[in-house]
Design a protein around this nucleic acid. Sequence first.
DNA 1: GATGAATGAGTATTCATTCAT
DNA 2: CATGAATGAATACTCATTCAT
Lengths: 193, 193, 193, 193
Amino acid sequence: MKKREEEILVRAKSLFSKRGFHSLTVSEIVDSLGIARGTFYLYFKNKDDVYRRVLERTVQEIEKNLKVLPLERPLEQLRRNLLSVLKLIEEDRETASLIFYHPYKLNLEFDEILEEFYGKVLSLIERALLKGMEMGIVRECNVKVISRAIFGAFVEVGKGLLKGELQSAEEAVDELLSFGLRGLLEGRNDWRN
Amino acid sequence: MKKREEEILVRAKSLFSKRGFHSLTVSEIVDSLGIARGTFYLYFKNKDDVYRRVLERTVQEIEKNLKVLPLERPLEQLRRNLLSVLKLIEEDRETASLIFYHPYKLNLEFDEILEEFYGKVLSLIERALLKGMEMGIVRECNVKVISRAIFGAFVEVGKGLLKGELQSAEEAVDELLSFGLRGLLEGRNDWRN
Amino acid sequence: MKKREEEILVRAKSLFSKRGFHSLTVSEIVDSLGIARGTFYLYFKNKDDVYRRVLERTVQEIEKNLKVLPLERPLEQLRRNLLSVLKLIEEDRETASLIFYHPYKLNLEFDEILEEFYGKVLSLIERALLKGMEMGIVRECNVKVISRAIFGAFVEVGKGLLKGELQSAEEAVDELLSFGLRGLLEGRNDWRN
Amino acid sequence: MKKREEEILVRAKSLFSKRGFHSLTVSEIVDSLGIARGTFYLYFKNKDDVYRRVLERTVQEIEKNLKVLPLERPLEQLRRNLLSVLKLIEEDRETASLIFYHPYKLNLEFDEILEEFYGKVLSLIERALLKGMEMGIVRECNVKVISRAIFGAFVEVGKGLLKGELQSAEEAVDELLSFGLRGLLEGRNDWRN
DNA sequence: GATGAATGAGTATTCATTCAT
DNA sequence: CATGAATGAATACTCATTCAT
């Protein structure tokens, strides 16, 4: 990766995360870097191209943190993954903003990138659930529905952290896990026991 | 409400839900109705104006279905509300699409409309949780985190229904409730008992 | 003249004098009268038509005050005419505004209306000058130039009154006349003596 | 100043002076130069912007010719200034057209540009008058009124030259001066003596 | 590699005018 | 006489993209 290309990608990510796809112009990207308009097109086919690559990178960064640990302790693995992603959000608001607030229907290609990412996360959750059931830790349930529910709960808590309406990622993940495992009803025990 | 205005709003909702705000042009709206460009501006100040009104209406339609039932049975109330909204989604994919896939950062005013709506839903959930705790049905928990989690789970399941990746709204809601109430761990009882 | 027609003309004059031709819309005229857009076109062919008729009327009102008195006392006649027009300006700012600040090159037809009016005023002045020369009161001069100069001086003083930068019409006319007759140089007598 | 910018300004001045602000379109400017619509907006913020800059330039060109000579000979200075401006008008009809026939009430900002210019010319005249009085050359008079009168006379003669209704600028200025200094009444001497 | 002037298709918006009721 | 909904031509302005230097 060329230095210039990298430079543009970094700046573009920052700007797209603040301004969204449509309101950010190519001029703003190049002006903010002090480079010529033509230089931009030396490294990127067009505006869609930068956006796609920004999205891809961002998704990859998160995926690096999604470890497919050995499945002996599926719930622990899930906990770790959720926590590591929420931590990332706390640290890198640009990434979070892109992932959570990406406008769908911009362009089918863009949507696919996130859909694929979401799909990966979903299947990670599904696999943990299935393994848990196999091991007798997790009760029988509709995995399709529940994995989505977990995913959604997680995403929404992530947004809460991003907006500053929730405070600590650690606390949120524990609360989330506890909720997911024990449910809301009174009279349960901690799942780790 | 004038007939024309209604006609435009209905068509605009349909088109915005399919195409998003930016890619839909005013020309497409009027062409699709076979009316003159000027006619559009007779009823709407500008493109933002239609979009705002479409969004407002859509939110209102859903809110009509969010009944603030007497809180004696908070969990039952929650169940009904979630179900009625998911049913709506099943029936009216345009509404669902607008609500779930609205691009944030389009325009602060637009975002506020949905934020306000989401806020209402969140507080509905919070109130049910708090009442449940008061009544001793729901165990102590961080209401801020858990209400978001429930909301997120619900939204994500809604999206799944919309995309056709999940089948029945009824089944999904029951599964969701059971998940939320009993959690995932083996060896729990049904909350209704 | 129909009552409605009159009503529209009066309002249009008022609005055109404040807003100018281009920035005033037909909608504003009809809205301000509480009548339908169609009603306007019952009495006027188009927007140009009202403007033309407003201009014509306004010019006619002034012309009524421009008396072609018997020429025995040409300078006295000139004084009276100038005074009567400046008085009108003091009283009717709408008329003054239209006459003095009409944007040329709007439309040839409009320009002609004022040009014709200006032409009349000029020839009034010219005739007074010529008569004065004939009578030996006025010294030999280039009537074309001087009549324009008198006209211009008069118009500019009118604008000064309109803008409130000059105070009394009477005083201004006397000063103007004295200037025109005696000139600026020291050591002259009053022309009436 | 970039070559293109200059090119556009020159053409715009020419077109505005012939067609006025409203009837001239941006398309006409660019078509007449054979450049793209976007090129125009590279150099000018909008249509108002070109007009404003054309007006400012034009005023500046004239102001360069308005010399604030030492005041020992105030009337001679006035004569020179009036003459130099009238000469300019003879030579540059576009400038003259813009200055004399600019439609007021287009836009407050535009009006201010000319008002400021007119104000400068007026104060130039006022200062000459006051100095003249101080030196005992000019008789006591209401300077506010008389300076306006001189200005108006001058403007109107300028218009006459522009329209071709008056012939020579030199002759007109001398006639104008003689009129202003000696007045119209018979039996006066030349002011230079 | 880098530049930045030039491009022009695309879009929102206005407003005088018409005409069926 | 009066209405006012509907029209659509006209226009300003934006911005992604190109290409000669």
